[in-house]
Design a protein around this nucleic acid. Structure first.
Length: 237
DNA sequence: GAGTAACA
DNA sequence: TACC
């Protein structure tokens, strides 16, 4: 069996009325940009975060979290995931790909919640509508190794990432794995956009700062401390 | 190499 | 950095 499904976590988190904001080194108006990588701190207010969690709860009810594995080796990822939208990103021993059905239930992915479409429209400029939202569930010890998002047919649209729960140490490099990295702390409610020059930048999650958000503190026993939503355009359009 | 383990 |  894989890790605990994240559904219970999401449902309980929604029931809470408070999402604490972590103190920051610097209050940042608007966003900061570095070669197409844009960081929007506090893009979602606490109330927006809670309402978005209700959307995620509905998604997970229809599409339970699953444990992806590495191509070839079959080694499991430390994160659990699910998807919503017409297409979902999956990984197993056969490789990385987008597909229209949940790998375990065989059902189509749930629709993209309107609130996610609204976030996309607010930060993705003139790009076509997103087709996939990958939802990653991070435990206190989960990480995401440095990688590129390159399984899409269309790189003209940006990748839009939304953070909920505990703060994560995030890095963004360049199109080569060895390019120098910039590090960010991604807090609950932050939005991060990889577009333009940064669309194919290597990026990853180095660590989770467990206990930095009341959202995640409620569900220590289930192990999920952070949720990341990644919106993507997959097909040319 | 969207993984881990071992290393200095 | 090595692994398979």
């Amino acid at each position: 069996m894989g890790p605990q499904p994240a559904a219970a976590y999401v449902l309980h988190a929604f029931a809470r009325t408070a999402v604490s904001q972590v103190s920051r080194d610097q209050p940042t108006p608007g966003f900061t940009q570095n070669r197409g990588a844009r960081h929007y701190p506090d893009f979602l207010k606490p109330k927006d975060q809670i309402v978005l969690l209700s959307d995620i709860a509905a998604v997970v009810r229809a599409a339970p979290s699953f444990q992806p594995t590495m191509p070839r080796t079959g080694k499991p990822f430390s994160v659990a995931m699910t998807n919503c939208g017409p297409l979902g990103w999956v990984s197993d021993t056969k490789g990385y790909r987008y597909q229209a059905q949940h790998p375990r239930t065989g059902q189509p992915w749930p629709a993209l919640p309107k609130r996610l479409m609204d976030i996309w429209r607010a930060v993705a400029g003139s790009a076509s509508e997103p087709e996939a939202c990958l939802i990653n569930f991070y435990s206190a010890t989960a990480k995401m190794g440095s990688h590129q998002d390159r399984d899409e047919a269309d790189f003209s649209a940006p990748v839009v990432s939304i953070s909920l729960g505990d703060t994560a140490k995030f890095h963004v490099g360049g199109p080569k794995r060895t390019d120098p990295k910039t590090r960010y702390e991604l807090c609950s409610g932050d939005v991060f956009v990889l577009g333009g020059e940064a669309r194919l930048a290597f990026h990853g999650i180095d660590r989770i700062h467990a206990g930095t958000s009341a959202l995640a503190l409620e569900e220590i026993e289930l192990g999920c401390r952070r949720i990341n939503l990644t919106l993507r355009r997959v097909t040319a359009g």
